[in-house]
Simulated assay, not measured.
Amino acid sequence: MIDYIMQYQSEIWQAIGETFVMVAISIVAAILVGLPVGTVLFLCRKGQLYENRVVFGTLNIVVNVVRSFPFLLLVVFLIPFTRFVVGTALGTLAASIPLAVMAIAYYSRLVEQSLLEVPRGVIEAATSMGASTIQLITKFLYVEARSGLMLGMTTSTISFISYSTVMGIVGGGGIGDFAIRYGYQRFETELMVVTIIIMIILVQTIQYTGSLISRMLDKR
């Protein structure tokens, strides 16, 4: 196995780098877009401070539709959009587009669930003190839900890694693509084992780190 690792070490490192690029872009999309979308879903749902059936219903349907798509079909469905955004439907950057779309929908739902766990009294206290909407969100809701938001991001990141393994269909590369091309198609079982071990180590590291940070943020 060590001989195989030494023989394919450059390809392995390239695959790991491609996975990191795709996952990193997904995380950024989840934070910059998914977090606000999840917040709006929470604030506009029935019984909340800014209840709005139209806004909530529209966003809720969009999020549910995207999350309901089998990811492989979503990748194919978004090829025209991907080509429009980055000019090509092939490569690591192009593969990041459908992954980012899924990341936004996936994390926004987890954000909504985390905010639903914030005690109603926190919102009432914020409004009674005259907090603006931005202050309510950033200084009260996010602060109270920070542990859950971190756990949600940890879970999302692990899911993004899992989704990235099928991006070889559009030439996205990554660990999954390496395992298929070099391990499965060439019948190199040892390489399959190596990639599985790499994935296990990566996922366990992320889970441990995310859980640790979440416990540190939880002041209850």
Rank of each mutant, 00 (worst) to 15 (best):
S108Q: 03
A131H: 08
T165E: 07
L99I: 10
Q9E: 13
A24G: 14
P119Y: 01
S214G: 05
M129R: 07
I12V: 08
I27D: 01
Y4R: 13
I158L: 10
M150G: 05
R53H: 07
D218Q: 13
V66F: 10
I25E: 05
L43S: 06
I16F: 12
A179G: 08
V86D: 07
Q185T: 10
A145V: 09
E18T: 07
A131E: 10
F56Q: 08
S211Q: 13
M129G: 03
N64R: 06
E124I: 00
R45G: 09
L49I: 12
P119M: 00
S132R: 00
G38A: 06
R45M: 12
G47C: 04
L59T: 05
R109P: 07
I180W: 09
F160A: 01
A105D: 05
R83Y: 11
V75I: 15
I25M: 12
M216V: 15
E112W: 05
T82Y: 10
T127F: 00
T138G: 07
V62C: 11
Y163H: 13
R83I: 13
V86L: 08
A103M: 06
L49E: 10
Q14A: 14
I79A: 13
S96K: 06
G152P: 06
T195G: 03
I97L: 11
S128F: 10
D3A: 08
V193N: 08
Y4I: 11
E188R: 12
I175R: 02
I31L: 15
F77K: 06
L41W: 01
L74Y: 02
F69T: 01
F187K: 11
T88K: 14
R181Y: 12
T165A: 15
Y4P: 01
R53E: 12
M6A: 13
Y163W: 15
Y106C: 03
T155R: 05
S68V: 04
L212A: 12
E112N: 05
A145L: 06
M216L: 15
T82A: 03
V170I: 15
Q185Y: 11
T133R: 13
I31K: 00
T165I: 09
F178D: 02
L141N: 06
M199F: 12
D3M: 06
I2P: 05
G148V: 00
I31E: 00
T189S: 12
I158G: 03
A145S: 09
G38M: 01
W13D: 05
Q7K: 14
V40C: 03
A94I: 04
A15W: 03
G91Y: 09
Q9I: 14
G17W: 03
V75H: 09
S108Y: 01
G172N: 11
I169M: 12
I25Q: 00
T127P: 01
L78Y: 11
T138E: 04
I213W: 06
V170C: 09
P98K: 02
V54Y: 14
A126P: 10
M102C: 08
R181D: 07
T88G: 04
I2H: 00
G130T: 03
T155A: 09
D3Q: 12
R120K: 14
